[in-house]
């Protein structure tokens, strides 16, 4: 399978990438590691006429301690995040979830920024971002702005970035020493989750985000409210509430609802909630 022909532009800075987006508009797409975009281009589900390669912006590949949060460059590869001592100490949920993405080869190339803006409800990273209360910094022709994780996922495979914006940094508030769990149900090791859940203990309750249970990565308000109300692990019974999962080859709607309740239940137990 070969993508539709395109023009290739290699950006040497974020500003250059943004300028290329501004010049080519909707016809252009940014490519970081290419592990979400390239498969879609090979299937011809995406056919940008200009690909702007940002994969060499090494100054956007880092994990830094920024005080009460971790600053992670958008171009940081999964492998670096899953093995980062800083991430393992202050956001172990993110380190673990990152280690569940694809397989080692995929994690050598894929980036956290690329994965998040791909906005796939079946992906592992978005749920971890939501459960950790994280945000992304984006840059465009008019400067920088911060988008909270809860505002990042606009629709099916659609982020809330403008066509001329790019993610530069992911910010993850520290959750040092707090309970957490990442649950993923799939049939083969390297597959996407049929259903998954990210759970992070916070003061007075927990954040619970579900994978592949809704057109967008989504927090479960019903479970979070039940936990705050003292519901404990029984809060998992609410995991299907408010979700509109799809039915596909892997699972029916009813099976997904069942999986959500079971996985959230296991996760709440593992996180000590």
């Amino acid at each position: 399978m070969i993508p539709v022909a395109f023009d290739y532009v290699r950006a040497t800075s974020a500003d250059e990438a943004i300028a290329a987006l501004a010049e080519h508009g909707d016809e252009a797409k940014l490519m970081a590691g290419g592990h979400s975009l390239l498969p879609m281009m090979k299937l011809r589900l995406a056919y940008p006429s200009v690909v702007v390669d940002i994969g060499r912006l090494d100054d956007l590949s880092y994990v830094n301690d920024a005080g009460d949060y971790l600053a992670i460059g958008a171009l940081t590869k999964h492998r670096m995040i899953e093995t980062s001592d800083l991430v393992k100490e202050h956001a172990p949920l993110l380190a673990h979830a990152t280690g569940q993405v694809g397989d080692p080869q995929v994690r050598h190339r894929g980036t956290i920024g690329g994965s998040l803006v791909h906005a796939d409800t079946a992906a592992d990273h978005p749920s971890a971002l939501l459960a950790l209360g994280g945000s992304v910094m984006v840059k465009g022709p008019n400067g920088e702005r911060e988008i909270a994780g809860t505002d990042l996922f606009a629709g099916f495979l659609e982020s809330s970035l403008e066509p001329t914006e790019m993610v530069t940094e992911v910010r993850i508030p520290k959750h040092t020493g707090a309970g957490w769990s990442f649950q993923k149900f799939n049939r083969r090791a390297q597959d996407w989750a049929i259903v998954g859940a990210s759970i992070q203990q916070v003061e007075g309750g927990a954040r619970v985000a579900l994978v592949n249970m809704h057109p967008t990565p989504t927090r479960s308000a019903a479970v979070e409210e039940a936990i705050s109300g003292g519901g404990g692990a029984a809060a998992a019974e609410q995991a299907h509430v408010g979700m509109e999962p799809s039915s596909d080859l892997n699972a029916s709607v009813e099976f997904r609802q069942h999986l959500a309740r079971v996985l959230v239940g296991r996760g709440l137990n593992e996180a000590g909630i």
């Binding site: 399978m1 592990h35 390669d53 994969g55 694809g102 080869q105 995929v106």
Partner: peptide
Amino acid sequence: CDTSSCGACTLHVNGEAVKSCTMLAVQ
């Protein structure tokens, strides 16, 4: 498989294993 699942096309780029069906030559 040509869809980054099977790993038959694995080679090393700068010493790390990657799936060469999911990388452009220009990269």
